[in-house]
Simulated assay, not measured.
Amino acid sequence: MNEKVLVINPGSTSTKLAIYEKDEVIVEKTIEHESKIIDQFKTIPDQKDFRKKTIISFLNDENIQVNDLTAIVGRGGLLRPIVGGTYRINEKMINDLEKESYGSHASNLGAILANEIAQENSLPAYIVDPVVVDEFNQLARISGLAGIEKRSVGHTLNQKAVAREVLEKKGKSYKEGKVIVVHLGGGISIGAHDQGEMVEMVNGLDGEGPYSPERTGSLPLIDFAEKIIDDSMTIDQVKKMIAGKGGLKSYLNETDVRIIQKNIEAGDSHAKLYLDGMIYQISRSIGSIAPVLKGEIDYIILTGGISYSDYLVSAIKEYTDWIAEIEVVPGEKEMEALYQGVKRVIDKKEMPKEYIEDNVQEEKYE
C-alpha cells in the first residue's frame, strides 16, 4: 500500500507543507503569510482557521484528496516536558496547546491543525520529537543554584533525525549509538545522544554554551547582572537580548554567516575575530559535553544551515576531530523527520506514545 502523509510545519509568518509517499517527497511548499495579516490575530490559536484554509488550498492545487491520506503529522509545539518519540495527538495535548499552557509559539498550531483536518476525515494525527523533549537524568538538571534547574530545550527534531541518518549509514541503530550533535543555525544547540536518548543539551535559548548569530550563549554573570540593573531591564528584554540580540548580531550587526565570510575575504579583520570567536566557543562546548558520554563517542555530527560553511566546518574539525570522527549533514531535515516519525509507526517499527499527565522519563540517577 502506498501511504501518503501530509506534513504541517507552521512558522511565525509561514506554513511549510509537504506530501510524502514511499519515503519520497511528492511536493513541498513554503507558504509565506503577510505580517499585517498575522498581526490581526490576538493569539496564535486564533490563526487556526486562516492557516487551515491555506492547507486545504494547497491540497486542492496539488489535486490531493484528504481522504487519500494515510495520516497527518504536525510540528510539535510547547507542551509539558516529554520523552522523545512519535505521539498520537489527543484531547489533552490540544487543550494544552489551545490554552498556551506552556508558552506561545507558532509551532503550537502544528498539532492543532493536523488534529482538526484529521478528525474531519477519520485519519490518525501525530507530532514527532517536539522542542520540549526531556530525557535528562537528575545530574543533568542541576544548575548550581537551588530553585533553578537546567532545561532540555534545543533543535530536538533535527538532532535526532540526523543522528539516526548518520548511524544507520554506518551500520548502527540510533538506540545503539553514542553521538554529539551540533545544530548550527541562528541559534546553536549541542546534544549528547546516548543509545536512543538525548541525555544532555547545551541550551542556547536559556543562555548556555557558545554565542551564535543571534544568541549570547554563556555570559559573565556578575557583569550581566549589573547591566540588567543599570539598564532597568524587564525579563522580556533580558530574554530578547539573550536570544535575538546577542552573538554576531551584537558584535557585527549581521547574522548571515555568508555575508560575514565575504566581508572577511574582503579583508575585514573585525568580522574574522568574532566569527573565529564563535567557532572557538562552539568547539569548546563540544569538548565540554564529551565527558557526558565518557569519551565513548561514535561521531560528532554537524548540522543546520551554517554547516554549509566550509570555513566553519574546517575550523571546528581542527579543534575537535581528536575527540571523534566528524560527519556533516548540512541544513535541516524537519519535514523529512516528521514524516519518518510517522512512517516508523505505520511500519510498526515504533509504537506511538500517548500524551498524558506525566510523560517525563523516570529519573536515572542511582
Score class of each variant (00 low, 15 high):
N2L: 13
E3V: 06
K4L: 13
V5R: 15
P10I: 00
I26M: 15
V27F: 03
E32Y: 14
E34N: 12
K42R: 14
Q47L: 01
K48R: 10
K53N: 08
I55N: 00
D61Y: 06
N67W: 13
D68E: 13
G77T: 08
L79E: 01
V83R: 14
G85Q: 09
Y87V: 01
I89G: 07
I89W: 00
E91V: 03
E98K: 14
K99R: 14
K99T: 04
G103N: 01
A106M: 01
A106C: 07
N108C: 03
L113M: 14
E116P: 02
N121L: 04
S122N: 15
V131Q: 02
V132W: 08
D134P: 07
N137Y: 12
N137K: 10
I142M: 04
L145N: 08
G154M: 08
T156D: 03
N158C: 07
K169C: 14
G177M: 06
K178E: 07
A192N: 10
Q195K: 13
E197C: 12
V202G: 07
D206I: 00
L219D: 11
V238M: 09
V238I: 12
L248W: 11
Y251V: 01
Y251L: 03
T255R: 11
I259C: 10
I260K: 03
A266W: 08
L275Q: 12
I279D: 03
R284H: 15
G287A: 05
G295F: 10
I301E: 02
T303I: 02
S314C: 14
A315D: 06
I316P: 04
K317P: 00
Y319K: 12
D321R: 06
A324Y: 06
V328R: 12
G331M: 00
M335K: 05
A337D: 02
V342L: 11
K353C: 06
K353I: 08
N359E: 10
E366S: 14
